[in-house]
Write a protein that binds this DNA or RNA. Structure first.
Lengths: 229, 229
DNA sequence: CGCGCGCTTGACTAACTTCAAAGATGGTGG
DNA sequence: CCACCATCTTTGAAGTTAGTCAAGCGCGCG
């Protein structure tokens, strides 16, 4: 616990009295000195579902996906984690999903024990974590509407817009994941994903510059298709 | 802020130094003196999506559902809140869904401003909120697997087991919501819900004692159907 | 250059939805 | 207390969307 106390002291100047309105990225920047960097090859697992949750992670480069499997092998991809995204918050004591690298990736690894101890003593840290959790919860609720009620084309349109929002202002979107990954994320098959993308291309809404990159040609049309829920 | 300080003092003996392993119900019991009780008639809204989020709520009696609508009226029911459940945590500044009474209900209403101020100063409160948020996130992830990959019968089986887990040890399950509510929660139509329930009855897995109550006859079979994801 | 994996496309199928109608349920007023 | 009516639920038949199965294409890597 003395180590924790030392960390608390070291971090206090940066974490106390922060406003509550800042974006979620980098609000935990003060934790960086607690983290160690790790590299992953494409398809390499970061952790498995049900493993004891020893670490939080933050993506630095590349992309990570979270997966859950049913007994017969049906797969669901819960989320694609991009640079800046925080992983592992939802774990109580064990991870709730498997995390695997979509592409070669680097992550920062934080001891949960230490971060949690810090959160216990520093309301600023705790509130940042809560804020991340609430934001993830909102996203999950949006995704449930998508999975529950949207058509294949609407799902793809929503997915592309979601990527666009995270990619910054550009209309050139990178799709590091496979069609199967996208399908497993949207509750569709690879084939249906492919057909929907082709249809959006035919309709002049997007351009497929390669199988892993597209350009948004008509964002308004895309938003209409996605249905501003 | 002096009011907050007074509250903090009043609550401190009950909120500081709590262990982290307790169940989520009642860990916020210390907040009860901050809350006021409100009653709702069946179908009455508690708040609407996009309203400014002034309050947290906790269900005391009855059931509340959260709804989101697409532009053309398609509906998704995110969650059924039962007695003890906490509502509104995911709201950043505005509610992310509409909340309506499924049955006549009573809730306790807490000022978000006050609770948040308290959470800022009392790590114990903040951690309880974080814990609730993480638990909800886990549930949301489970629900996304269901919506993404499970068949109609699997969805119904999972739903019944979920209710059973919350209802305590009994195998007699109350279904206060309509078939349409269940369908909108599981990404199915009313008719499909009805057919799946009938099928489970024919298979001897459940008994339908009335249209709003059922009894689990074979919990193992139900768990197999739900697919231990 | 060729090989392998992932993507696209086509034809067919299955699961769920839609449309329709009849059967329960429960709440209300006579 | 009972009958009626609105609403919810069940069931049937036809339609639609997305899934499955299968074949061919193309990009990227060795």
């Amino acid at each position: 616990m003395s180590a924790t106390a030392a960390l608390q002291i070291a971090l206090r100047p940066q974490t106390v009295c922060r406003g509550a309105g800042a974006p979620r990225r980098d609000e935990l920047g003060a934790l960086d000195r607690l983290g160690t960097v790790a590299s992953l090859r494409r398809e390499q697992p970061l952790f498995h579902e049900a493993d004891p949750a020893e670490f939080y992670f933050k993506v630095v480069t590349g992309a990570i996906r979270s997966c859950k499997l049913l007994a017969d092998g049906r797969r669901h991809v819960g989320e694609f984690f991009m640079p800046g995204d925080f992983i592992g918050l939802d774990a109580e004591t064990n991870y709730m999903f498997t995390a695997e690298a979509v592409t070669d990736a680097t992550v920062v690894r934080y001891s949960r024990r230490r971060v949690d101890a810090l959160a216990w003593q520093e309301p600023g840290i705790g509130r940042s974590l809560l804020k991340i959790a609430c934001h993830r919860l909102s996203s999950a609720q949006q995704q449930m509407v998508l999975l529950s009620r949207k058509t294949a084309e609407e799902r793809i349109a929503s997915f592309i817009l979601g990527l666009a929002d995270r990619n910054g202002a550009t209309d050139r979107i990178s799709l590091p994941m496979t069609r199967t990954d996208i399908g497993d994320h949207l509750g569709l098959t690879m084939e249906t994903v492919s057909r929907a993308l082709t249809q959006l291309k035919k309709d002049g809404v997007i351009e497929l510059t390669s199988s892993h990159e597209l350009v948004i040609l008509d964002r308004d049309m895309l938003a209409d298709l996605a249905d501003a829920a």
